[in-house]
Design a protein around this nucleic acid. Structure first.
Lengths: 329, 329
DNA sequence: TTGTAGGCGTTATCAT
DNA sequence: ATGATAACGCCTACAA
């Protein structure tokens, strides 16, 4: 393995000088810098990330923490984009990344989780899909021992940032889009998990809309489950002029139920997953760019690691209708 | 950070002794072992993986190499299962894992790729979805510098193993399943990428079947593209009694085209992705357990790293029909 | 501006 | 069976 010493020898300087060049230290003459860089490219040298991480405790390894594959097309699509966005941005920023799943920590205490992360020299964690059930993770966040960036979970402290779209506004906007084409007097809203972080926000948005537009709103809890949304719809979907769902999967469950009963009601979802295009072309949804979101989250992780303070960052979204022709490739 | 030294102090032994306990060295008395283990659990100590990797060059970090999120539901579903299976098994085996994408190496030479991997102390690579276009990766594999496990790509040498299902047999079986219920005299086969690793194998299987059953076979190249499969089907799908596709996405493209023309032909795919359940309940496919496959691949990586020789490992599959009710959760 | 030396946490070698 | 010591490759005061 070609090391910093080899580069130093070839460039005729000391190893520490090479290190300085690598880390963009100020006091290095242009001449030396060039000699070193030439040696580096000649030898095809890449600094050993492991040694570097060991040496400087701040070299920043970041963990991506998320739910394990659910075998549900929708979720997997979103998660893959999260992973891609986060990893690519991390590479760009020179951060080392490891991917871990909530399931790995299921039976672990906060201390154990913390010990594990430290054992991996983790300094930052980007967390996707945190729910209130992950009690230990939340405790960990509150300890402020690691720099955390939460996607879609509004916990903020000195070393914790939150990245998400304005949930209430997005929910308002997407349902409102439907109103432009369909007359609606009564609406069924199928919400997410009872005490989920986004659930309350989205509910707030739909309530505001119904108030503004004088629509009778009935909200039922769908738990983000396609099956449950389907059941609710089979049960009472026909009693309302429109069905708004807090996720695409639930929108799909509702739409499939409506189809089965051979009745039609406009349905809107939330997320913008590809699957929507296969099921019906009548569905409006909030499309979020998950790749971009993950990318921003990783950037924020780097910001926190280099001393920034926790904050809230809003991401964009757009209201779309997904047809088969849109998603076909 | 609590280190091996703290444990040593608490247990009243030398640091090197603690290390011996950690790595299950033979020559440690039961008594010392207990003292050390007690200290370890009292202090909640977890060995620093980074330092360990640096010290012993054989501590085995493994890279997962795959395609970046394609924003195609199907692929993402498969990739997420690959990632989960690989990472969880690695954790079980005590291997450190980093995830990287082909796109990161696009403009890199073999030497640069190799340097990067070494810089990450990578000793093993599990590669998913390798294609002949990844010329540099293939060169890298042939150098035998790293222990490689290829999923669905039949390259084998002393330090390279291949994990895959018997492609020809699976393709034979799935199409044959259709024959049990539908009388077929002519078949349209839409194959994968021209020079893909699995394409030839699957084609072999379908040819064997048509020979055995006396069916007129027409094979066209679909490039694994849903769109292309759709176009081919629109063009000439009606001229055949059945359409067999080398992937589910192509099967879906074909089925959507048939629906559009309002004609019916049995269609079979390959992979067993969830999306199949949303599109039609008339499709037969080969279901592979990608989680399990990745898990096996990681096990094989560990085997190669500890001195095993490259070999071919066959994985299981089953022939299924995916209905909406099967996938609904 | 450059080089020297000590240390990051672990493992491996060699004494004891 | 156990302990001291030297790596592993890099970073960072501090000295020159």
């Amino acid at each position: 393995m070609v090391s910093i010493k080899d580069v130093a020898k070839k460039a005729g300087v000391a190893a520490s000088t090479v290190s300085k060049v690598l880390n963009n230290y100020p006091n290095v003459s242009a001449e030396t810098r060039k000699k070193v860089n030439d040696a580096i490219s000649e030898l095809n040298f890449v600094p050993n990330a492991v040694a570097s991480a060991l040496s400087s405790k701040q070299a920043g390894r970041v963990a991506i923490l998320m739910n394990q594959s659910s075998q549900t097309t929708s979720i997997d699509e979103v998660d893959m984009q999260y992973i891609s966005g986060a990893i690519l941005k991390a590479r760009e920023l020179g951060l080392d990344v490891i991917t871990i799943f909530f399931s790995m920590f299921e039976d672990k205490s906060v201390d154990e989780i913390s010990a594990y992360l430290r054992s991996q020299s983790i300094t930052g964690i980007v967390i996707f899909g945190l729910s209130r059930e992950n009690a230990n993770i939340i405790k960990l966040i509150n300890r402020e021992e690691f720099k955390c960036v939460l996607v879609d979970a509004p916990l903020i402290n000195k070393s914790t940032s939150c990245v998400w779209a304005d949930q209430a506004k997005a929910q308002y906007d997407v349902a409102n889009e439907v109103l432009k084409t369909d007359p609606v007097k009564s609406m069924l809203y199928i919400s997410g998990k009872e005490n989920g972080f986004v659930t309350a926000e989205r509910l707030k948005g739909i309530k505001a809309l119904c108030r503004d537009k004088d629509i009778a709103l009935t909200a039922k809890c769908g738990d983000f489950s396609e099956k449950k949304a389907r059941e609710i719809t089979l049960e009472c979907g026909k009693d309302y002029d429109m069905i708004a769902c807090a996720s695409d999967m639930m929108a799909i469950g509702a739409m499939m139920a409506l189809k089965e009963e051979d009745i039609f009601r406009p349905v809107c979802g939330f997320d913008g997953i590809t699957l929507m295009g296969y099921v019906s072309n009548r569905m409006t949804t909030v499309r979020q760019n998950f790749f971009e979101i993950a990318s921003k989250a990783m950037e924020e992780a780097e910001n926190l690691i280099s001393g920034g303070l926790g904050r809230e960052i809003h991401t964009d979204y757009e209201i779309v209708r997904l047809d088969y022709k849109d998603i076909l490739r």
